[in-house]
Structure formats: structure tokens, C-alpha cells
Amino acid sequence: MRSAQAVDPAVSVRKFEREIAEFRRLAADYRRRGWYMAEAKFPIVVVVLAAPQVKPTPIVLGVRFDYTDYDYRPPSVRLIDPVTSSPYKAQELPVQLIRAVEVPAQLPPGFQLPPGMELPKAVQHQNLMVNYGAEDIPFLCIAGVREYHDHPGHTGDSWDLHRKTGAGRLVRLLEVINKYAVGPIRGYNVNLLPQVAGYAIGELPG
């Protein structure tokens, strides 16, 4: 996998700085949505995402972007622990990025619909974070992400087809991650493990 800077670094730096400047110009809006830029030094940006719809508000995850060689190549995107900055392994992800996709329902073999009747749509759950094992570092499987375009399964969907659409821009990628990782969070799941710790005692006799 390539990792070095191939394009003139001044080009990547300028485009990187534009991303940072535009984010900072609207930082108050993004902060209200729970987005905090924690680090920005070429080629790395780290943004922490909180879930303000939940009280007390949790910090859900961090996102590390690497804009090396941008935009000759798309940015690398990793979900990271916001405290340690370590990329999450698949088994450590605090949330999944699940998309509900409508697909045509299928009848079991041998069945036929009566004429004029249509099958309702079925909903399939698609995880946008892809991995091949619990110890793997998962990648965000959408166009505009370096790991997606470097994957041998996506050679037919070249970055060049997306480069001019803004697919690799910081705010666009944050919007996608926020939509699927943070947006669906509605509260805390709590497991209670009651333990009997003796008896409740009433008024003591004299």
C-alpha cells in the first residue's frame, strides 16, 4: 500500500489548510452538533464526535483523517479512541455504522405472486465499517475514503471518479460518520446486576 507523498506537498498543504479554515469558520455550528476539532497539523486532523441529543452528553468516538497526498489520493479515515488516539479494532468499536437499505424482497423458490400484486420492500442492514476479523482495524467503506479505494474489491470505483465531487472533504466525511455512528444514539443502555446484600430492617423492638 502506498503511503508517501507523491503530489507536490504544497498542493496538499493548501487543500488541507482550506479544509481546516472552512471548518474553523463554522466551528460554533459544528460544536452545537457535538463536533470538536482536537488536532489539525498537516496531514492529520482529529475530530471528536459527541452525542448532544443524550444527557449527560457522551463523547462517542474520535475520527483521524490523514490528508497525505490529497487530493491526488483521498484521505485515510480511521475511527479512534478519543483519549488514547489508538484506532479501534473491530471488536472495540463503541458503535457500528449501520445503514438501513431498502432492497426488493424475494419470494421463496416455487412461490409466485398473484398478477398485479407487488412485493413490499425489505430492509437490509449494511455496516459501513468493514473488517475481516475482530482484531482488524475496520475501514469506512464508502467512496472518498483511501481505504475504500485501495481495497482490491473496489478497483472499479476509482478515486478519480469521485475526486471532483467533494467526496473526500472533511465536513462531508464527518457528516456521514455522524449520521450513522452518532445520530441513531438515543440514550444509554444500562445493565443492572442486583445483588442481595442482607435484609431491609424495620423499626427495632425495644
Binding site: L26, R99, I142, G144, V176
Partner: peptide
């Protein structure tokens, strides 16, 4: 008023 227009995720997988 300020609105935010962003490219959808597209098809992943």
C-alpha cells in the same frame, strides 16, 4: 439561516 448540504454516503460494501 445557515443550512448544510452534504454528499450522501453512496453504496458501500
Amino acid at each position: 439561516v445557515r443550512l448544510f448540504l452534504n454528499l450522501k454516503a453512496g453504496i458501500g460494501g
